[in-house]
Simulated assay, not measured.
Amino acid sequence: MEIVTFLDHNTFKTEADHLFMEQKSIIKAVLPNADVQHVGSTAIPNSLTKGDLDIQVRIEPAEFENAVEALSKLYAPNEGSIQTESFRAFKDDTTIPPLGIQLTVVHSEFDFFWKFRDVLLSHDRYRQKYDELKKKYEGKDMELYRQAKNDFFEWLMETPEFTML
């Protein structure tokens, strides 16, 4: 059983910001038309984080297969994640902090990571609610946390602030 732990985002801010800029440059070199976004808790001040960096790479539909091929040369596939015609996940556990890459087709079903970030950035009550969820699962089973996190984000997607994006 994998246990989940959280730290204040400030613990990782400098490393996460540096790694994001480095990885954005690498990704843009192979995918110049990509929209590369820093998403996840390290992108949200005052939030709790597991200590990893999440990047969303948004690409037009016609460029998706090329993007999958290009990112596959740079990162390992995230085998625990789904694969569709508009979404792939990659990772690099050797970086500090560890790195997760979510490749999405713009306006597709999985093109929501940047929206979660923007809603949490602009509505502190939602960030606080998310942090309370994290505190509840501190030191507990990662799978239980992931399910609760999914439930939270499904709820967040129904809020007026999310639907307006």
Rank of each mutant, 00 (worst) to 15 (best):
49 T>H: 01
115 K>N: 07
81 S>Q: 11
61 P>E: 13
87 F>R: 09
132 E>P: 09
26 I>W: 05
160 P>F: 05
28 K>V: 08
124 D>E: 15
110 F>C: 07
37 Q>N: 09
162 F>Y: 13
53 L>F: 06
117 R>E: 06
147 Q>I: 15
78 N>M: 10
42 T>R: 03
102 Q>K: 14
2 E>Y: 15
149 K>C: 07
83 Q>K: 13
66 N>E: 14
51 G>P: 04
34 A>C: 07
9 H>S: 14
41 S>E: 04
92 D>M: 07
116 F>Y: 09
51 G>I: 02
120 L>A: 04
46 N>K: 12
48 L>R: 04
24 K>L: 08
53 L>Y: 03
135 K>L: 15
9 H>D: 11
108 S>N: 06
57 V>R: 00
78 N>S: 10
135 K>C: 11
8 D>G: 09
114 W>C: 01
118 D>R: 06
109 E>F: 14
53 L>W: 05
162 F>D: 04
45 P>I: 11
39 V>Y: 01
165 L>W: 14
74 L>Y: 05
27 I>E: 00
17 D>W: 03
85 E>Y: 07
54 D>E: 12
20 F>Q: 00
10 N>T: 15
29 A>M: 12
82 I>R: 11
156 L>P: 00
134 K>P: 03
66 N>Y: 11
19 L>M: 04
79 E>C: 10
99 L>E: 00
67 A>D: 02
111 D>K: 04
